[in-house]
Simulated assay, not measured.
Amino acid sequence: MESVKEQFDEISKKYDSQRRILIPCYDDFYGIATEWLHLNSPTPKILDLGAGTGLFSQFVLEKYPQADITLLDFSEQMLTVARERFANLKNVSFQIADMTTFQPQGKYDAVISSLAIHHLSDKDKQELFRKIHGLLNEGGVFVNAEQVKGSTDYIHSFYTQRRHHRLDHSELSKEAVGASYERNKLDKCASVSEQMEWLRQAGFKEVDCPFKYYIFAVLWGMK
């Protein structure tokens, strides 16, 4: 995982500014992920795994401004950007840790993640889903705004071709596009159907994929 950490340490300052170009469905992707975080309490306890610069957490805090939210990431540089983003909020805390080995601190009403879990092996994904299920209060939800693999090699190849065509003709510099392709080499994406089955196996009683656009999908589970 060290190579993943190094690449995200390097991109930390530019991460947010590139999101809308790298994610063509940006508004729906984060908007629907946030919409499916439907919680009963106005002050929910939330854990953001692989939180990075806190982009997803910002959407969540706009919906639940009084949420007690912890941002966890193994990149100190990414969390430094997040600390600047939430500098004046006392209800936001930070934890530098690997999502696969961190020690839980109590139960949560929700666990969220965005564009992070696809860096794990399939085995580690399944173990993490079980861990997340154990972290949640009854009725709690897991929302994962994720990068996924096509359901077949042919479909995934088409996704990749379309993405490369769009980025190669985007306003991003050649260096930024090349850096994105280098980060993609570290991806270990799984399909939507595989991950939905793993969520069921982890114990989630309700599972869905409320949004998907090529390689971007929102996966949801309720305990």
Rank of each mutant, 00 (worst) to 15 (best):
G150M: 12
G221E: 05
R200F: 01
G134C: 05
F29I: 06
S157R: 15
A179N: 11
P24W: 04
T70S: 13
N144W: 08
K188Q: 14
I21Y: 01
I155Q: 15
L199E: 01
Y159A: 05
W220E: 00
R163V: 12
L39W: 11
L49H: 01
S121P: 02
C189M: 14
K212L: 08
V218E: 01
I112Q: 02
K223R: 05
I112R: 00
T100A: 08
E62N: 15
R200C: 00
V192G: 06
F211K: 02
K13M: 06
Q66N: 15
P24Q: 02
R19F: 06
Y108T: 02
D208F: 02
Q66W: 06
E175N: 12
G150F: 12
L128Y: 04
N40E: 13
D27T: 09
M196E: 08
K131M: 05
T160A: 14
L167G: 04
V92C: 05
N88W: 11
N137G: 03
F94T: 01
D122I: 08
Y108W: 04
Q126H: 10
R183N: 12
S114L: 07
T43G: 10
S193T: 14
V207M: 01
L47S: 02
G203H: 00
K63V: 12
K212T: 10
L167A: 05
L128I: 10
A110N: 03
G50Q: 03
V141E: 04
R85P: 09
V192N: 09
K107F: 09
L89W: 10
E10H: 07
V148M: 12
G31C: 11
I215W: 00
F59C: 07
D48A: 11
P210A: 02
T152W: 05
A202W: 00
